[in-house]
Amino acid sequence: MNNKKKSILIFTGFLAILILISIISLLIGSKNTSPADLLRAITGQSDSEYSILFDIRLPRILIGFAVGGGLSLAGAILQGIFRNPLVEPYTLGISGGATLGVCLNLLSGLGAGLSFLSMPLFGFLGAFAVILILYSLSVKRGIIKMNGLLLTGVMISFVSTSILMLIIALSKAEEIHRIMFWIMGSLEETNWPLIWLSIGISITGLIVSCFYCVDLNALSIGEEGAAHLGINVEKTKRIYFIITSLLTGFAVSVSGVIAFIGLIVPHFLRMFLGGDYRILLVSSYLAGAAFLIFCDTVARTALSPVEVPVGVITGIIGGCFFIYTLTRRGILWEK
C-alpha cells in the first residue's frame, strides 16, 4: 500500500471518529436527546429540542472543532520546526502571549472599532510577538538550544501571567470577572459570525500548512539538511510561524487558554503513525478536534449541573502526560 492510499485511509478513519463524537456530544447533556428527537428537531417538529441542540450544543461543537483542530495542528507544526516533541503553543508561552494580547484589548478598548474581530486580532498579535522572540533567541542567533527553548517558553508564560495579574490588579471589579471567566477556557460562544470565522481560519490554516508538509518532513533532518534538499527554510518557517500564531491567537481569543491539546494529540499520533508530516498534520487536526469535543462533553456532563471549564480537564490530562513523556523521551525522539 503506498503512502497516498494509506493516508487517505487514516484520514477517513479519523473523520469518522470525529463525526461520531460530535453526534454523541450533540445528544448528551443535562437533558439527554435520543436520535429520534434529533431527527424531529432537524425537520422542525420540535422547537424546544431545536434550540437546545442547535443554539447551545452545536456552537460548542463547532468551536471545539475549530479550536481543538487548530491547537493540535499548531502543536504538530511547532514540534516539526523546533524538532522537539514537547513544544506546543502552551508550553512555548504562545498561548500566554495571546492571552495578554486579548486582555489588553478587553481593558484598553483599542480595538473597539473592529467589533468582534478585535479579540482574535489582538490574540494573533500577542501570539506572533512571542513566536518572534522565541525564534530570534533560539533559531536565528542560536542563543538557546532546544531544551532551553522549553524553559524560555515557560518563563514567557510566567512573565505574561504576571503582567496579566498587574492588569487585573489595576482594573475594576466587573472587568475582573469578565477576564477570569474567559481565561478559564470555555467553548461557549454565541456569536455566529465569530464561530464561522474561527472555522474558516482553522481550516484555511490546515490547507495552507498541508502545502508545506514536505518541507516539514525535510526539516526533520535539520535545517541545513533541509536546505540541501532545496527547501527555502527561512520562508517555510515564516509561513508556519504566521499560521501557528493565527491558529493559537484565534483559539485563545475565542475560548481562553486550553492547554496541552497541541502536545498530547500529535505526540500520541506520532507513536502510532510515525513521523511523516503528510499524514501527521491532517490526522492531528481531526484527532485534536475530536479530542476537544470529547473533553468538552465530559466537562459539561461529568459534574452536572456544575460545568467544569474544559481547560481544566485538558490541563490535568495534558500535564500528567507531559511528565510521563519527559521521563521516557529518549526512547521516542532521539536527536
Binding site: 503506498n2 503512502n3 497516498k4 493516508s7 524538532r83 498541508c210 502545502f211 508538509c213 514536505v214 518532513n217 525535510a218 526533520s220 533532518i221 535539520g222 541545513e224 539538511g225 534538499l229 532545496g230 527547501i231 506520532r270 510515525g274 513521523g275 511523516d276 503528510r278 521516542l332 525522539w333 536527536k335
Partner: peptide, 27 residues
Amino acid sequence: EHESGWMKVEEYALMGRVPYYNRFQLF
C-alpha cells in the same frame, strides 16, 4: 550533522527526491 527525525532508512532515502517535487506535490 546526524539528525534524521523519526523515520525508517527507506523513508530517509526517499527524501532525496524532495528537490524534484512540484510545489503542490505531496506524495
